[in-house]
Design a protein around this nucleic acid. Structure first.
Lengths: 230, 230
DNA sequence: AAAATTATTATGTGCATACATAATAACATG
DNA sequence: CATGTTATTATGTATGCACATAATAATTTT
């Protein structure tokens, strides 16, 4: 075989799981046995099994051995889209407009999400993102000026806050949430759609270690779909 | 150090990336150098770097070396929720009601998604999922009876089609899409909400190798949020 | 100078070995 | 019989080595 052994073994094992040869929750042969069977080193089998474990297909326990996951929750992995790329990929021209950019007191939910002390202000900005000069998404963002004071002097009319943050504080951690809301007056106006339209929403908060950076809500033009494999 | 070396090295490297010591897109030292620096084998550094590459933080090329990803698209990973678990986790009782279950001609979009020949029928079922006897999600599903004929005799009033499929054809591949729609009459009735309400939607199609199994649309009760880390 | 060939380099992979560690089973002890 | 102690076992990790491979750089050939 010219193929890579640990990957083809992973594939072989996956096949035996999918075919039902090893039932849900059942224990599969030990690494040593499999190594003998496939004629390779235990290391190689180990690597294949770890990969399957990472994907949530098997559960491994010391001494307990490896067993097929009895509750196969396949996990979907998808890339948080970057608007410019997303628009570009669709063959459209990307642009954005900073509607407002003020320093003011954040409402309690935002304050707690960004761990901002009471009475402290934060940067609030509203941006409309366009694809070929048609609104594509509306962004509402709060930035913690204690952790990222440089945002105050950034040229946000030229580079969007999102991109500025990606360049300035890349590799931050965060959490995301997806939901749907009916467009209110403000959203409908920004996206040039009707009040009440079903809008796909992404909420996102990011931080770096203990420093909370930004929280953002992104309202997509109606009809938007986010795709992913699993 | 009592900690595991390849993980702590991964952590150390991550720190150097996050701190900006290695700028976006810049090349980082080779495995051999890093191994010397951290006083470990190249294999160990390799493992740490591969992990970072899997997470999309660095890009590795043979001969080209390893460089910090210049366009850091962090990918979110999340588990496709299983309704029963989801409801149970919220401390509610799960139940479901099979509203209809018929064999009929699928509409063209469904037919092509499941690769069903023209003129061939497929199983169509509508299910309402409840949390504490309040509607939680409404499911509309088509099952390819050529690949999974057993579905026709499954007791779908007792076990939901979803769970039956998970048990019968686990570990299938698939794709997912998220979107938002306004509730129409049918959805509104099923979810006991108003027509026009913003509904979070999950579309999902699954297959095993070449065999297309099922396609499903899940309409969540308004206000639902799907969370994830990144 | 353009194109084809060869060397170099950094990562990719596999293997044998050794030892660590968590979970369990077997055993002994009060 | 309950309980604490000691094997046993399967996975987890690290290492040194060898060789494969892709991408680039250097060289030669046309």
């Amino acid at each position: 075989m010219t193929v890579i052994s640990h990957q083809s073994i992973r594939q072989a094992l996956l096949g035996r799981i999918q075919s039902g040869e090893w039932a849900l929750g059942s224990r599969i042969p030990g690494e040593t046995d499999l190594a003998t069977e496939y004629g390779c080193a235990r290391t190689t089998v180990n690597r294949a099994l770890q990969a399957l474990a990472d994907e949530g297909l098997v559960v491994r326990k010391r001494k307990g051995g490896t067993r097929v996951c009895h509750m196969p929750v396949r996990q979907a992995k998808f890339e948080i889209p970057i608007l410019r790329e997303q628009v570009g990929a669709a063959g459209c021209d990307y642009s954005h407009r900073l509607v407002s950019n003020k320093l003011k007191l954040p409402p309690p939910p935002v304050r707690s999400r960004l761990h901002i002390p009471a009475g402290e202000k934060a940067a609030h900005m509203q941006t409309i993102h366009y694809a070929d000069s048609r609104p594509f998404a509306y962004e509402e963002r709060w930035v913690n000026t204690q952790t990222v004071p440089e945002i105050l002097t950034a040229p946000l009319d030229i580079i969007s806050a999102n991109e500025w943050l990606v360049k300035t504080v890349p590799f931050s951690s965060g959490d995301v949430a997806f939901s749907a809301v009916n467009a209110n007056e403000k959203i409908a106006t920004a996206l040039e759609t009707n009040v009440g339209a079903a809008i796909f929403v992404i909420d996102r908060t990011t931080w770096l270690d203990d420093a909370f950076i930004t929280t953002m809500t992104l309202y997509y033009k109606e009809g938007y779909k986010l795709h992913s494999q699993l």
